[in-house]
Design a protein around this nucleic acid. Sequence first.
DNA 1: TAGGTACTAATAGTAGGTACTAGTACATAA
DNA 2: TTATGTACTAGTACCTACTATTAGTACCTA
Lengths: 196, 196
Amino acid sequence: MNQNLKKSERQKRIEGQLRENPFLSDRKLAEIYGISIQTIRLDRLEMRIPEMRERIVQVAKNTPTLDKVKSLKKDEIIGELIDIELGKNGIAILNTTKRMIFGRTGIVRSHYIFSLADSLAISIIDAKIALTGLARLRYKKPVYAGQTLIAKARIARKKNNKYLVSVHVKVNQEEVFNAKLIVFSFEDKKKKRGIK
Amino acid sequence: MNQNLKKSERQKRIEGQLRENPFLSDRKLAEIYGISIQTIRLDRLEMRIPEMRERIVQVAKNTPTLDKVKSLKKDEIIGELIDIELGKNGIAILNTTKRMIFGRTGIVRSHYIFSLADSLAISIIDAKIALTGLARLRYKKPVYAGQTLIAKARIARKKNNKYLVSVHVKVNQEEVFNAKLIVFSFEDKKKKRGIK
DNA sequence: TAGGTACTAATAGTAGGTACTAGTACATAA
DNA sequence: TTATGTACTAGTACCTACTATTAGTACCTA
């Protein structure tokens, strides 16, 4: 199938193939390239690629369980609530990571910061359901991956089921973001579909 | 360590233990329970639990590769860009899922909608780097998991490196969200750290 | 005492290797 | 021409973690 390749070329292909599909045994690779199993093994030896079983173990080991994925996602997007006084105020922390950045800039994407602020704002509303209706966001300084965001939210005004929540996000005492949000609360009785 | 257990009790524990840690071999289990390897094998046979290597393969196989995770995340949070005219306008689609909702309400969390809008707004800026500075968001109707969001963004005004982008998000022709964003572009030369 | 359950022991065979030795074909340098 | 090196093949001994099977013991119960 792939015979008559140069050694270097073959090794490149094997490496790529195993990266894509770590389940290929030496025997199958030998069949694919029309060479002996021994040659495949020498190739792996040269490239320091471990045996199939070891490769599979490695894949399995850095498999996050579903639970882990979920909690990670939650943490990543929403941050960690560290203090709440329902109906008054709350504090949340988000450790930013490389996964949240733009291409090569190192700057955290704006919606992660909003997610933190919005989630916190909703968390401090003392009602079964709270929905954001209006928001005014101000990004004051870029945030770089690795920096820890501290968000503080406060209910500034309340009128019936309408809350004005202000959120300030800081990195090392310095404000990088603030927002004013109008949030509406519902008690889950009428199942209103419209907000306005 | 765990000797003198009843068979049924032991089997329950083994089952749980292997669910938690599929990497345990029969020999290790035998050591843990102070019984013979053969007994462990009979236990597995009874419970139809496959051998260690097979268990590891199963874990590895439903491991999403990093690429898959990334694209999933991208799709989930940012949506799919379906049309762009750089410097002018763009359209993106996001299929909402149960993962994006509040507790039991079925209503999509607001930051997913903002993420779609914000990402799209930044995508249509014709510059290496674009950062959101200010945003005004209006959530007009709640979005329910399963609904498909269609976002349209347009550059309304431009002054130097400052863009005013308006985004409208619709579900079935009906507007559920709109936003006005002030986005700043940078050409990656000066590496400005402040936006304002 | 026979039968069943729970457990142990041992053997043959398997996949997918490691580690090692030996040998061939071919090219290149002294 | 000979020597050396490379690329490759072949084969053995050994390993782990099993499967499948047979055989046997201890103990309880009807």
